[in-house]
């Protein structure tokens, strides 16, 4: 070991060389190499510090502090260079690997629910939230359920309200149900009040033009209990319309006739197209008929053996296509059954 001055020179030289080596490093391994040679655990400066024991206390102080200073400086430059080189490498790497994020991902494009099915599901969901349970029934129906038990006697002109398809059968008079109302009878035959059901389904009438289809869909509702009133019916349907068409759409209840309800009502909503001012869709009346309803006729209770003095109830029914047409601005009912994907993918 030489003098302390010689050691200082050596440290200064190592510092200079170390800085030069760090500056010359082009990548992480060059840097690590330089660190190893000059100021790592086994680097030249560390070696000097290891040999410091042979020096006087004075010299030890001087050399120790010089070496530590040099090592700290190199260490700091190293960290700086390392960060900078890593950043350069990252930029270089990612530059090569850059992806076009606008290219399509690998997955299916979601399909579309049929507007009739969607509208029906929405109606069902509203009434289920209002405490109604779903009931189904057959499309090929007995005359008894479709007409007779709903208080359409044979040879009654009320039967003309619905152009009926008949089914060839050896098992009595079968029809394609003209409405979902037979489900009322089937349900009441099966259970005692309280009854609170909705019955969705396909129905059939012998009629075809831009607003009539030989097959279409209805949702029927029925509630029977002690003390059910027409005011309850009004309240429920008002709530339904608010949930379906949004708030602030006035409703109008107008007397009408259905054989299986009395008193009966037709429910109109203020025209969703013109807002009541009058247009082609509402035939200038400002109102759109959206459902039929009424209090269950005592004659119907007679068919299912409910006592009309004890129980009362209401029923209502609506055409799903009609509501879907109003919601989506569809003017020709036939579009629903063409299943043109360009049509379906609009909803």
């Amino acid at each position: 070991m030489g003098t302390s001055a010689g050691t200082s020179d050596q440290i200064e030289r190592l510092r200079a060389e170390g800085l030069a080596a760090l500056a010359a490093s082009r990548n992480e391994s060059d840097l690590l190499d330089a660190k190893g040679r000059f100021f790592g655990k086994k680097g030249a400066i560390s070696e000097i510090l290891k040999g410091i024991g042979s020096l006087s206390v004075e010299e030890r102080k001087v050399v120790g502090s010089e070496a530590n200073r040099a090592r700290a400086e190199l260490e700091s430059v190293f960290e700086e260079r390392l960060a900078s080189i890593r950043e350069q490498e990252r930029v270089a790497r990612e530059g090569l690997d850059r992806l076009d994020v606008t290219l399509p991902g690998r997955c299916q494009v979601p399909g579309h629910r049929h507007p009739i099915s969607q509208t029906m599901a929405d109606i069902i969901s509203v009434f289920r939230r209002l405490g109604f349970s779903v009931q189904g029934g057959p499309d090929v129906e007995k005359d008894y359920y479709n007409f007779e038990a709903l208080n359409f006697p044979p040879e009654h002109p009320a039967r003309d309200m619905q152009d009926t398809f008949y089914v060839e059968s050896d098992a009595g008079d079968l029809v394609l149900r003209t409405h979902t109302s037979p489900i009322q009878i089937r349900t009441m035959e099966r259970m005692r009040p309280p009854v609170r059901i909705i019955a969705p389904g396909a129905v059939y009438r012998s009629d075809s033009d831009i607003t009539h289809s030989p097959m279409f869909h209805q949702v029927e509702g029925l509630a029977v209990d002690r003390n059910i009133t027409m005011a309850d019916l009004k309240g429920l349907l008002t709530e339904f319309c608010r949930m379906t068409f949004g708030p602030g759409k006035p409703l109008r209840f107008r007397p009408s006739f259905f054989p299986f309800t009395e008193p009966s009502a037709e429910v109109d909503i203020q025209c969703v197209i013109c807002g009541g001012g009058g247009c082609r869709v509402c035939k200038n009346s400002g109102w759109l008929e959206i459902l039929g309803a009424g209090m269950v006729d005592p004659a119907v209770f007679g068919f299912v053996d409910y006592d009309p003095e004890e129980f009362s109830g209401f029923a209502f029914g609506m055409g799903v296509e009609r509501i879907a047409m109003l919601r989506h601005g569809i003017s020709d009912i036939r579009l629903f059954f063409e299943n043109d994907i360009r049509f379906l993918s609009q909803f």
């Binding site: 289920r128 405490g131 779903v134 309850d232 309240g235 008002t238 009502a265």
Partner: peptide, 28 residues
């Protein structure tokens, strides 16, 4: 009712009962 006008009928709400969960509910 009709000659008094349906507009005069109040809107109330039927007494609530827990709905049954039917086989057709499950099917829906």
């Amino acid at each position: 009712a009709r000659l008094s006008g349906y507009e005069g009928i109040p809107t109330t709400y039927p007494e609530s009962k827990a709905p049954e969960f039917s086989a057709d509910d499950r099917f829906v």
